[in-house]
């Protein structure tokens, strides 16, 4: 199939899609006039039912917890796939330390790293109260670690992030989520029932399993993104042959 024919077929299909899409959205509620009942039910009930002030996280880690478990395993298997495809123990054997960063860069990166770590931990542990949670906090924690690479060099970054403990934490986070879900069986309750004490609304230690699951997700996302960052950096470093 040559390019011209491919374009003809594409534009035919795109025009068909555009027509059907227009017909479909034409009868949606006017923009800005949301009227589905479910969002309002969730928004008004989760504070009282789950002692959670961030409704989005109450949905993610509790009401819709089973879906999020599935999403989390997509994340887990994707990272596993990247590891399988790209990781090569023979790579980067001969990388020498360059360490040519200026003192100001290293000092600045180390200071920002500390601040970002605290911020990431805050995000991970306060998801039940304010916007944040395991997914966002985990990404902040993992990307903050890139500053190690900036401040030091690839060898130091590798020593920290390619450690088996990171892989173990990744698995632990994924397993922890499932284990919290399964633990409801001990009380003869359905999978992922929020059985832990709900605590006082607005406290850090509130909302029962929501906070616990959020922490597990944070652990897994941190480890997953650390491994991704390491694998891709390794790929770049081995291509260019630079150590830092």
């Amino acid at each position: 199939m040559n390019g011209a024919w491919r374009m003809r077929i594409f534009f035919l299909a795109a025009a068909g899609f555009a027509c059907l899409y227009f017909l479909a959205v034409r009868n949606l509620p006017p923009w800005g006039h949301y009227r589905g009942p479910y969002g309002d039910v969730m928004a008004t009930s989760s504070v009282f039912q789950r002692h959670t002030t961030d409704v989005v996280n109450a949905i993610d880690y509790d009401y819709r917890g089973f879906d999020t478990l599935g999403e989390e395993f997509i994340l887990f298997t994707s990272v596993l796939g990247v590891m399988l495809l790209l990781r090569d123990p023979e790579k980067n054997k001969g990388i020498s330390r360059s360490g040519n960063m200026g003192q100001a860069t290293r000092f600045g990166a180390a200071g920002s790293y500390a601040a970002l770590l605290v911020f990431g931990l805050y995000m991970t542990t306060h998801g039940q109260l304010t916007p944040g949670g395991g997914f966002q906090g985990g990404v902040i924690l993992a990307t903050a670690s890139m500053l190690i690479y900036i401040a030091e060099d690839f060898r130091v970054f590798k020593r920290i992030t390619s450690h088996p403990i990171v892989e173990a934490l990744d698995a632990l986070g994924a397993a922890g989520y499932a284990a919290i879900g399964l633990s409801a069986f001990l009380f003869s309750a359905p999978f992922l029932t929020n059985w832990m004490p709900l605590g006082k609304t607005g406290d850090v230690f509130s909302s029962g399993t929501i906070a616990a699951i959020s922490a597990c997700v944070g652990l897994e996302v941190t480890a997953a993104f650390l491994m991704l960052g390491y694998t891709y950096l390794e790929e770049i470093v081995s291509e260019t042959g630079e150590g830092g």
Partner: peptide, 18 residues
């Protein structure tokens, strides 16, 4: 605003990246 669609999105942003 509807929190459900936001929750649907939130997980997907991270999963999309991986």
């Amino acid at each position: 605003v509807d929190p459900i669609v936001q929750a649907l999105m939130l997980t997907d942003v991270v999963v999309e990246a991986t």
